[in-house]
Computed example of a mutant assay.
Amino acid sequence: MSALIATRPSPAERLADLAVQALIDEADLSPKPGLVDRRGSGAHSDLHLGLMHTSAQSLWPAFAAMADAARAEGEVSQALRETLGQLGRDGEAEMLRVTAGVNTHRGAIWALGLLSASATLEPDAAADGIAMTAAALARLEDPAAPHNPDSHGARVCRRYGVLGAREQAQHGFPAVIEHGLPQLLASRRAGAGEQNARLDALLAIMSQLTDTCVLHRAGLEGLERM
């Protein structure tokens, strides 16, 4: 009679679990102004909570593969940057397949993919150290990356002279490290409760971030109101 032997998840699998759970927790967090949450679709006519969950789960293999690639390479390098780029594009293709073409998590693939790889390279580092390793990766060029100067984000960055998601990563995610994370920890210490602490962190980021999606939809007036 054979016995079932339980196997422990690898470090890459654990990081992929955390990345997917983070996306699901973000979608579920309520109430979020203008965003998909448990109340409804916010300002998005093409998104809903179930689609966000399906999309997040579809990205597990990509996040695990990025962490595995970082483990194999062992350091920040041009080769690792290009591998992460291809794995991210593969993950995006799978995301678009399961969402029937809806862009649910393109930015999250970029951010969490970099962070998963960086957490593999710096397993004992604090959040700011992981973010700076991610920044070093993000500053390396990927020759195979598609360049679309007419995308909404690119046009907004040119028009308003602001930093987009790519630049946030290249600077070590300052909106998160300098505003969101400190507020999260402060709210937890103050006894706000986990949901309210996470909402506080979101609002801390929203109050500082030059969100290119908001600029595209509502211009400077909308961003200032946010």
Rank of each mutant, 00 (worst) to 15 (best):
G193I: 08
G88I: 14
E92A: 08
D128F: 11
M95D: 00
T83E: 05
R155V: 15
H152N: 11
A111R: 14
A175L: 06
A100D: 11
L185E: 15
Y160N: 13
L140C: 12
H171M: 15
A125H: 05
E82G: 06
P123F: 13
G107I: 04
E122H: 08
G113W: 01
M95F: 00
Q183C: 03
V176R: 11
E194L: 14
R166D: 09
T120D: 04
A144M: 15
E94P: 00
F173R: 06
H171D: 09
Y160F: 15
T104H: 07
A154T: 12
R155W: 01
A126W: 07
A145D: 01
L112P: 07
F173A: 08
A108W: 05
E75H: 12
R139P: 04
L87R: 07
G74I: 06
R189M: 14
A169C: 03
N103E: 08
L181D: 07
I177E: 00
S77G: 01
G88D: 09
A79Q: 06
L114K: 14
E82D: 13
A190G: 01
G172P: 14
R159H: 05
R81L: 01
G113K: 02
G91R: 04
Q195V: 03
A138L: 07
M132I: 12
N148T: 03
R158G: 13
H171W: 14
A126R: 09
R89S: 00
G161T: 15
G91Q: 05
C157D: 04
S151L: 09
A154N: 12
G88N: 03
A192V: 10
A111S: 15
L87Y: 02
A100H: 15
A127R: 09
V162T: 11
T104E: 00
T99V: 04
E75Q: 12
D90L: 03
R81M: 12
V102S: 04
E141S: 10
A136W: 00
L84N: 02
P123D: 01
S116N: 09
A117V: 06
A175V: 10
A190F: 02
A125I: 14
T104Y: 01
T133G: 00
G191L: 11
G161Y: 03
G85S: 11
E141L: 00
G191T: 06
P123E: 03
T133K: 12
L114Q: 07
A119Y: 01
R97P: 04
E75W: 02
E167D: 08
V156I: 06
A190Y: 10
R97N: 12
L84F: 02
Q86T: 13
V162A: 04
